[in-house]
């Protein structure tokens, strides 16, 4: 939940970051080319290196590899397409194509997971709300209020629990009692919350809620670097989308594994996609080098 804002990449405007993450996750999820999956996996993983400690990163990496292995091995049990039969298991054919399909899919799924982890570390709920505030003001207001209520309710729940303990109605000898306790706390919390909600609403009305369009506090400014990043990114994105209309970028596994086609269009598409997924990593490395260089001159 705590946002990682010491990164150079995270200093971009949240709108730019949201567009970037959604496009990368979308391209990874919906284009099914093995090289795209692999590039996306590597790009996400090297960027995640800046977000996690070495130990966390290594653990994450091994969990990913394990997941890839498990999905690739189990896929032939569920899909029997493909013509190259390796052997029969419980009267069902296990095909080479299905193993490779599983492998590609596993890399794709894991890279989507990696990118979502980066997304969660870079974009926190409040920035997301800041972005919806413009087009969906009421929804954003509801979510903002809910977000404010969450820590408030958690603190209130602790207070209620302490009060009940002091009153002697607390008993945690069995699981059933524990559950009953939680429910009692929850019920008390609710009464309190609803009363407070009405007071908040009355206070909102007395201050003229709904009489005018809501203004919002813009904590984020568009800088030149945001425009530059967005322009370059959209240009490259258009290149990728355009190249996706060519048949070379569509790789089929069934019935036989397609030949890996290397045409000029495909090379351009691969380079563009690699540029997109390694962009955060490059920005980070460049920023760090610049920082070190400037520090060395002091």
């Amino acid at each position: 939940m705590e946002r990682e804002d010491r990164l150079f990449f995270a200093k971009l405007h949240p709108g730019v970051l949201l567009i970037y993450f959604l496009c990368v996750i979308g391209l990874t999820m919906f284009s099914f080319h093995p090289l795209f999956s692999l590039l996306s996996f590597l790009g996400g993983l090297v960027f995640l290196g800046f977000l996690l400690s070495h130990r966390q990163w290594l653990r994450y990496f091994f969990i990913d590899l394990l997941m890839i292995l498990v999905i690739a091995v189990t896929n032939p049990l569920f899909s029997h397409y493909g013509v190259t039969v390796l052997f029969y298991l419980f009267d069902n054919p296990v095909t080479l194509e299905s193993v490779f399909y599983g492998l590609n899919m596993a890399v794709m799924l894991v890279s989507v997971m990696v990118w979502f982890t980066c997304f969660g570390k870079i974009i926190a709920a409040d920035q997301f709300l800041y972005l919806c505030g413009g087009s969906l003001p009421k929804t954003a207001l509801t979510l903002t209020m809910a977000m404010k209520f969450i820590p408030q309710f958690q603190k209130q729940a602790v207070r209620i629990a302490n009060a009940q303990k002091a009153l002697g109605v607390y008993n945690d000898s069995s699981k059933k009692d524990k559950l009953k306790n939680q429910l009692r706390i929850f019920s008390t919390l609710l009464t309190d919350a609803l009363e407070n909600a009405v007071i908040t609403a009355q206070s909102m009305r007395s201050r003229g809620f709904g009489t005018q369009k809501r203004s919002n506090y813009a904590a984020y400014r568009w800088r030149h670097s945001d425009f530059a990043f967005l322009a370059v990114f959209l240009l490259v994105l258009c290149g990728i989308l355009f190249s996706l209309s060519f048949p070379e970028l569509h790789f089929s596994f069934y019935p036989t594994i397609a030949k890996f086609q290397v045409t000029p269009v495909a090379i351009v598409a691969f380079c563009c996609f690699a540029a997109v997924v390694f962009l955060p990593f490059i920005i980070e490395v460049k920023g760090n080098l610049k920082w070190k260089f400037l520090m060395s001159r002091i």
Partner: peptide, 17 residues
């Protein structure tokens, strides 16, 4: 009504909590 929005926010927060 303002109450409806706040009540909705309370219910969302309660389910998250």
């Amino acid at each position: 009504r303002e109450e409806k929005i706040v009540l909705l926010a309370v219910m969302v927060a309660l389910s998250v909590v």
